Amino acid sequence: MIRPLTVVEIQGRSEQGMTRPFHCRCDDGNLYFVKGRAASQRSLICEWLGGNLAKAFGLPIPEFTIAQAAPELLELHPEGRDLGSMPLFASRKVEHVQEFSISHLHQVDDCLQRDVLAFDWWINNGDRTLTAYSGNPNLLWSTEARKLVVIDQNLAFDPDFDPATFSVTHVFAGQIDLLNQDLIEPQRLRELCGRALAVWADACKNVPQEWQFVDEEQTVPTNFDPDAVLALLNRYSHEDFWRMTPWLRA
């Protein structure tokens, strides 16, 4: 198991996002967005495993780790109970970023757009939406480096994933037609998936024991089946999988 960082300062809490992550400084001196008790255990597992896959896949995601906060520190913050003393998911804060918008689309390389699109398709992540009218892409734009930053895999491996909705609402859905027609890209994507899956076993071993149960007594398992998720991920090797046509996902 990896050694968790220690939260040494709770600076506040985000007003955005379903789980409203906490802004914390850890004992390595860095600032992090930290999720804990307010996020479900399944959400934390998905965030951790999805993050490990995304990093190995080659997506530009912030550094992340597991952290822990002492009870006495939590008592000093009015919402500390929502963070909790169990292991926490901590994503390092990236400076000089803003929320991704339609205006940034043309600045993202087409290949990277396809990689993000394909990755979300692979892990059943329908939570990266953006249309001309609304959306929540869970992406940031670095104004300093003029680069994309990919965040939030907490809704990955969704058993209710809807391919039809995905193909319309994904922020990079404009790449679907090209991907469906290309003969080379599917092979490249299969290679990326194979490389990413090489970290799966170690990532699973580092899932904190506390996340695997919904109660403190650890008597009720979290609704997350790693074997079923691995079977889902292994579909990447099927040739038809990369034809992003909804009826081919049945």
Rank of each mutant, 00 (worst) to 15 (best):
A90N: 08
S91F: 09
S91N: 06
R92G: 02
R92T: 02
R92L: 05
E95P: 11
E95Q: 14
F100A: 03
S101C: 13
S101E: 15
I102E: 15
I102P: 13
S103F: 11
H104A: 07
H106Q: 14
V108L: 03
V108T: 09
V108A: 02
D109C: 02
C111S: 03
L112V: 01
Q113K: 12
R114L: 08
R114T: 09
D115W: 11
A118L: 08
A118Q: 11
D120F: 11
D120Y: 13
N125P: 07
N125D: 11
D127S: 10
R128Y: 08
T129W: 10
L130S: 04
A132R: 15
A132Y: 15
Y133Q: 15
S134F: 12
N138F: 03
L139R: 01
L139N: 04
L139D: 03
W141V: 07
W141D: 09
W141Y: 15
S142K: 07
T143K: 14
T143G: 15
E144M: 09
A145P: 09
K147H: 09
K147E: 14
L148T: 03
V149S: 03
V149I: 10
I151H: 06
I151E: 02
D152T: 01
D152E: 05
Q153A: 06
A156H: 09
A156V: 01
D158S: 08
D158G: 08
D158C: 09
P159K: 02
P159E: 03
F161M: 03
D162T: 05
D162K: 12
A164E: 14
A164T: 08
T165M: 05
V168H: 11
V168W: 12
T169R: 07
H170M: 00
H170S: 01
H170P: 08
H170E: 00
V171K: 06
V171P: 09
G174Q: 14
G174D: 15
Q175C: 14
Q175A: 04
D177N: 12
D177W: 06
L178H: 13
L178A: 10
L179V: 13
Q181M: 13
D182C: 07
D182V: 05
P186H: 12
Q187M: 10
R188Y: 13
L189T: 08
G194V: 03
G194L: 04
R195Y: 10
R195D: 10
L197P: 06
V199N: 10
W200S: 01
D202P: 04
C204H: 12
V207K: 04
V207A: 03
P208K: 07
P208Q: 13
W211R: 04
Q212V: 00
V214C: 00
V214T: 00
D215C: 02
D215A: 00
D215V: 01
E216Q: 05
E217G: 00
